[in-house]
Design a protein around this nucleic acid. Structure first.
Lengths: 259, 259
DNA sequence: CACTATTTGTCCGTATGTATG
DNA sequence: TCATACATACGGACAAATAGT
């Protein structure tokens, strides 16, 4: 019973609209996916779990049965319930302090698919972010990045018109960063905000997750040499396949933390 | 009915374990809190909503009644249902390249509450991260940080025993960073991973969100002068109240992006 | 081999919650 | 508001598989 702490007890709430068996299911699943319960680990007996969480054995059984049917557990009479899910955090990790959607950073093993490219009227927050005039149009690109054929990132980018170089054909064969460079646009300032959102049905479909699943979101506004914002990028990432990673050494911690 | 798109239709799933009235309740609440439905806006009639979402009128009524009782809506016979919730987005933004849980960075307007402090056997991923011996115990602290009385961050930290200075009393009066400093522990390297997770029931309760809501997660392993990891911190943040923010200038983009 | 304790599988009856028309 | 159907949750009882003595 060591894997289940006292704090887990309080997290099962009978008055909550979500059914008890599903709350317990989610709790155990998270412990498995998070690495608290690893392959081969023995789950306490239904009787013990029921007593510990103050629910009936049927409720525990339903939760564990659901996890078994999804391949997380294996259950046998007399033998008990064991974890079969193999925990291995296999995520791409990008250094945070660099241009994240460049192939050089990502490595060569990822592919980008252009979903849509069109000149559109930008939404209000893009108008604000890029400091556009009321009726100015921009080029919007929707892209999905995959690794080993599995999508892990969705980009929506709005770019102010910067000459004839940024076309659908060019985007399909080159990275945006390369295109910028070729067009003589050198990014000087990058303003970046990191947050989390729930997947809507569109994003869920494109990233092959369920609607409502948590996603990592990075909003980035890039400006050129003269400080004019030219690109507004919203990147959305599957947290199980992609995470941001950064190392800080002493000088960074002290100097950069001082401001 | 303009506020409710076709996408929303599919997000109500009868086969999902959570009851329909609660799924609808959550959907409308998110639209209100997200600013899609603002103060004064008229919600479509129960009959229309029921038809649109393919559920019974009673289900719609239950969802709207719950929102009314929480102060999001006002409902009157003959007048319809109107939004009373006042939308104002106010998020704290912390620079990413600094020690995020120090008061100096956060500003003085936040308060930390110590929920629990105990010497425990660490979970496997902490054993790995801190390179601990199999039976070594560590000090675990659970804390919640609030701004204006509203919680926005939850920290779980595991610290290797570093002398008698790290006690419950000390933690309640000083920041962990100050304590480290006083104990002669100088953090040299910080290894940081940013991701997103769904709130479990415990986190949901402590951060006053719903279970399943997306949260920003930062995992940080800090090491001392000799490169020995001494602290494993998992910070979880409400994305509507806290976001990471960073500015990169040209030299950063070029030099730091090169590695 | 039997015997026993443990653990999961299956079934019953009942009460409450959810959702429909 | 009512009747109906189904899902959830409980306590209890017994059967079947497994592991150890």
């Amino acid at each position: 019973m060591r894997a289940f702490q006292n704090e887990d007890r309080a997290s099962l709430r009978p008055d909550h609209p979500s059914p008890l068996y599903h709350q317990l299911y989610a709790l155990v699943k998270r412990k498995i996916e998070g690495g608290d319960l690893r392959q081969g680990a023995l789950i306490p007996a239904e009787k013990d779990l029921a007593q510990f969480f103050g629910v009936s054995r049927i409720t525990v059984k339903r939760a564990l049965d659901d996890l078994e049917s999804e391949g997380y557990l294996s259950r046998h009479r007399g033998r008990g319930t064991h974890v079969t899910y193999k925990y291995e955090p296999k995520v791409l990790r990008a250094p945070l302090d660099s241009m994240l959607d460049s192939l050089a950073v990502m490595g060569r093993e990822t592919q980008v698919k252009l979903i849509d490219f069109a000149r559109v009227a930008p939404p209000p927050y893009v108008v604000d972010g890029l400091r556009l005039l009321p009726d100015q149009w921009v080029d919007r690109a929707l892209r999905v990045r995959s690794s080993d054929g599995l999508p892990f990132a969705h980009y929506t980018s709005w770019t102010v018109p910067i000459g004839p170089g940024l076309t659908q054909e060019a985007l399909q064969s080159s990275s945006r960063l390369d295109l910028f460079r070729r067009l003589g646009v050198h990014l000087k300032d990058v303003d970046q905000v990191i947050s989390a959102i729930a997947a809507d049905t569109t994003l869920a479909q494109r990233l092959v997750v369920r609607a409502g699943d948590p996603l990592l979101q990075v909003t980035r506004i890039s400006s050129d040499q003269r400080g004019r914002p030219i690109d507004y990028l919203v990147g959305v990432y599957r947290p199980d396949r992609f995470q941001y990673h950064m190392k800080l050494s002493a000088s960074d911690v002290l100097v950069r933390g001082k401001r």
